[in-house]
Design a protein around this nucleic acid. Structure first.
Length: 427
RNA sequence: GUGAUCGUAGCUCAGUUGGCAGAGCAUCGGGUUGUGGUCCCGAAGGUCGCGGGUUCGAGCCCCGUCGGUCACCCCA
């Protein structure tokens, strides 16, 4: 299949199609998620934004961070014909903030509460819940540093997941502090790690200089047990950061969002400050983060805007569907036309058009099926009614209307362009 | 990028010491010259991922390659 004949989707991608096996391959589940998400965003008063799927590569390098894995090894990079360095977006925040600054949206009433939805691209080896093209629902609240905004964003994430049916979800919360906190904490952590350098795994040693906070991401057991002894950021939080965290916790408790403080929670994107959070589901595999985000109080000014705060989350739709209890959506069509003679097909087609024009879903056979086959198809598409047109019916200007559930049939006139049929089929 | 494992019909999978490529489900038709969801019968559907090699002979053994899955790394 890989050579000569037959194409496959690119490595690390998947298709959504009728009969798809995995939850994220089933169109009806996507439609469900999309409708729930839109409804939640409406309730919380978020407005939609639509952004390009590629941007100048430099935008991501500056915002996500040169040292981050996303920038260092996971971006799809390409040049356009004029030689511009572009990248398929690996995440949504950079583009949203770029648009916010570019269109002077900070001049509107603040904060601006935004949501977006679309594909993200990362050049990674795929595994359960991880694809090279995946889809994120995201929100950004720009122009406020109010801790209650943090509460709203986190609770919206949780609410959204619960409305869709994510199982065994826990939100992990941490505060990475402001610059003051980091200036005090990072040297202490680095000193501790240097002292114990010989006990660290190679990846952690490599991270020591660039970003010692990331050592906490290590899954190496030795490193993890060593980190039990490490100084924690909680001891170093500035008064402001500490108060901020306190308000966020109080807010989450007020709203009943289940969360746990995890002082080892750091994030792989460099723009985060203060509040960071990850929603995990035990129903997933090793990639158990179903949604995550945090505050980025320096990002707007870094990208050329005013010194305003922002916070957002991204949540992966594929992982939501994987973590949610699977559901079955029954097919549903109001009426299926069964034609028993070729002469009836054009009449059926006209009647179908008349019903469709009035909002009634209906269909007919395009596969030259036998009568039996057409009834079988009617059953398969979940038709409530079969509209039967044979020689006798044509002669009398009627159809037989069969209730597929009860099997009862009655005769309905079709000589009036379908008005009687519409009445009989409508509910 | 690293490792393990798997690629046979649309789907789920059998396939013996290397010897004519199979089943169930799904599809189409027939049993019911015009009636589905149960049942019975039948048909159609494959370059056994791809390319080399060994052999009289390869789905099976060897090498390579592409892809899936899972894990590491990292993240949604």
């Amino acid at each position: 299949m890989s050579e000569g004949k037959g194409y496959r989707g690119p490595k690390g991608t998947y298709d959504v199609y009728p009969g798809g096996r995995e939850p994220h391959e089933r169109p009806e589940l996507w439609a469900f998620v999309e409708s729930v998400a839109r409804e939640r965003f409406r309730r919380y008063n978020y407005q939609e934004m639509r952004l390009p799927v590629f941007e100048e590569a430099q935008l991501f390098i500056r915002s996500v961070g040169e040292a981050s894995d996303i920038v260092r090894k996971e971006m799809f990079l390409f040049q356009d014909k004029a030689g511009r360095e572009l990248a398929l977006r690996p995440e949504g925040t950079a583009g949203a903030v770029r648009a916010y600054v570019e269109h002077n949206l900070f001049k509107q009433a603040q904060p601006l509460k935004l949501w977006y939805y679309g594909p993200m691209f990362r050049h990674e080896r795929q595994q359960k819940g991880r694809y090279r093209q995946h889809t994120q629902l995201g929100v950004e609240v720009l122009g406020s540093s109010d801790p209650l905004v943090d509460v709203e964003v986190i609770s919206l994430l949780y609410d959204l997941h619960q409305a869709i049916g994510v199982r065994e979800e826990v939100v992990y919360l941490n505060n990475l502090g402001d610059m003051e906190t980091r200036r005090a904490y990072v040297p202490e952590l680095r000193a501790f790690l240097e002292e114990n350098r010989s006990e660290l795994d190679p990846d952690s040693v490599a991270r020591l200089d660039a970003n010692p906070l990331r050592t906490f991401d290590s899954k190496d057991p030795n490193t993890q047990s060593l980190l039990d002894e490490a100084p924690t950021i909680g001891e170093f939080l500035s008064e402001e950061a500490s108060a901020h965290l306190g308000t966020v916790r109080e807010g989450l408790e007020t709203l009943g969002v289940p969360y746990e403080i995890d002082e080892r929670l750091v994030r792989g994107l460099d723009y985060y400050t203060m509040t960071v959070f990850e929603a995990k589901s035990a129903a997933l595999g090793a990639q158990d983060t179903v949604g995550a985000g945090g505050r980025y109080n320096g990002l707007i000014s870094t990208l050329g805007g005013p010194d305003l705060g922002g916070i957002g989350f991204g949540t992966g739709v594929e992982r939501i569907l994987l973590a949610a209890a699977s559901r079955d959506a029954a097919a549903s069509t109001r009426a299926f036309f069964v034609t028993l003679t070729p002469e009836a097909r054009m009449l059926a087609f006209g009647l179908a058009a008349a019903l469709r024009a009035e909002g009634v879903s209906c269909d007919l056979d395009y596969a030259d099926r036998s009568a039996k086959g057409q009834f079988k198809q009617a059953d398969r598409v979940g038709a409530d009614f079969a509209v039967i047109l044979g020689e006798d019916e044509l002669q009398d200007g009627v159809c037989k209307l069969r209730d597929m559930k009860s099997g009862e049939e009655r005769t309905v006139s079709v000589s009036d362009g379908g008005k009687d049929l519409l009445r009989a089929v409508a509910n």
